[in-house]
Design a binder for these strands. Sequence first.
DNA 1: TTGTATGCGTTATCAG
DNA 2: CTGATAACGCATACAA
Lengths: 337, 337
Amino acid sequence: MVNGQLTVDAKLAKRVRDAIREMGYLPNLQARALGSGRSRVLGLIISELTNPFYPELVRSFEDLAETSDFEIMLGSVIHKNDEHLNRFVRRLVQRRVEGVAVMTFRADWDYLHELILHNIPLVTIDAAAPRARCLVVEVDYRSGIDQAIQHLALLGHRRIAFVSGPLQHFTNQARRDAFLDSVRKVGLRAKDTPVYEGDHTFEAGAAAIGHFLSLRDRPTAILSSNDLTAVGVLRGLSERRMQVPEEISVIGFDDIHMAEFAHPPLSTVRMSREDLAAAAFQGLMRLTQHSSPYAPEPIRVKTQLVVRQSTGPQTNAVTAKADSARRTGTAAACSGE
Amino acid sequence: MVNGQLTVDAKLAKRVRDAIREMGYLPNLQARALGSGRSRVLGLIISELTNPFYPELVRSFEDLAETSDFEIMLGSVIHKNDEHLNRFVRRLVQRRVEGVAVMTFRADWDYLHELILHNIPLVTIDAAAPRARCLVVEVDYRSGIDQAIQHLALLGHRRIAFVSGPLQHFTNQARRDAFLDSVRKVGLRAKDTPVYEGDHTFEAGAAAIGHFLSLRDRPTAILSSNDLTAVGVLRGLSERRMQVPEEISVIGFDDIHMAEFAHPPLSTVRMSREDLAAAAFQGLMRLTQHSSPYAPEPIRVKTQLVVRQSTGPQTNAVTAKADSARRTGTAAACSGE
DNA sequence: TTGTATGCGTTATCAG
DNA sequence: CTGATAACGCATACAA
């Protein structure tokens, strides 16, 4: 009866339900878990909460989990030593999580061996752990980065720099490769598309801009591998009294909330946290529901350029003459965009 | 034996332990919880993760919890409707949490009634829910705000404005009252200490500065009730091409990580997340350990001024003449500080 | 359909 | 101090 079937008198049912409510009864979920063999707990591993990208991802994931009556155990990778991390993973299996989403944009998952050992469903980003019950969310960096480079090319930029994250991580290589491909596609050469390897922090942006401005041929536009660093770039430029976008254009990647309120508001390639969270959650559900195939088809997530005010037509004095005619044309095209 | 007593042969013990490890055995915590009646789960309720203050608090609390083998269930209050919130609280009791820390800086805890009903230990900030097994963490706003005002007074500021959070919340009243008291203490009058009621967002800072600059007697220094808003103030000032601290001084409150990297680096009153987390956690432990008294003595957390570069001597042209002699004196005092 | 017994993996209790 | 056994609170499968 309690489970919703109305075979008894409706009035009696109501009385019982009221009694339950009055006594404040709520089922004990750990007992339920033990009985059913399903904990209704999911693990979520992120890089770190102090990177504003992740709270938004976490929130979306939590919302999804909540509507499906799942709890989530949150763990972050950065600023935790291996010992910390191993303990977290051990706790995940001790709580008998039904699956874990590893949303860290890196492929060093040695610390996940305990999960693999216990055959716990896993969803990862960009690259899959080679095992059963694992599913990849493939982020399509090319779509958004292509748009960004084409946008800059249309604005007349011929020297475009890139600030990458640590290249030891597969995902950062993917972003850089997407950049290099895009930039070749619009006909730019290697010497005009320098890459600086940062570490995705705010501070890295300032360092990168220092590097690029010391170059013989300064870039007229900079694409950063994430927004936090792009804001650092903006800040470094501001300290040097350089105007954005008049003197130099900047595009970020991620589209964190802060991007909109940067100075000037940052044009950026949006990687939707909602999409990412939804992909991860659905992946987990897919993995737990039926006995799934060894390597299910990956879930793809697109990226997309968001134009704000940190990008403008190329107007560098040195190259101004040569590109003059072309520039006015593209500027017009831009305004109509 | 497994529990660490060495009554049997050490070599045998090692073999058993190795066997356990090889089989990948880990105890089932939900079974343990059921048997022992202790879930080893704590609830942590915050305002919202997108306010950078809270991730740092969460991290500290998590570290404490982890070293004591507790799991935490995290919930945020903002951007969740009451239905959401009630469901979260219900889940807390369904998971049989051993206590919950309510770190939201507001006193509207209607949504906590389910916890009270189930007699779950509660730690709150600033104001206590009127019930047993509840403990308050009292933040001493006065200490830090006094330091801030004295600092500004020493720098020669005579018109100091305040941007408060929503005054419907007790805690924001406490901060404002601390401001008003401090400002009276250094001899300033009401008309020279205007208060603008914001909502603790970035945007509120820009709005506040718009308001203050429209005043007949513009303040020469602004104290904000939190850092996010203070950064908004900085941004609003920058858009109006006003120099900080040359034309106007700004002090924040919280000391979030971002404060250090604001432009210029923000002087602020630090409310230590570590202290807050430690107080909350210890409070919870105190409440769960022994059967504690109805209203245990509150735990106090101090605040403290951190001087960076957003504060400087008062140099407003209009008042410069009158205060001239005094200023040079205080400026000297300041440089020696 | 509805009630009843058994299992889930641990802790705790109580004999031995 | 050790070893068996009854809870713990629910799900589930089976009997009525």
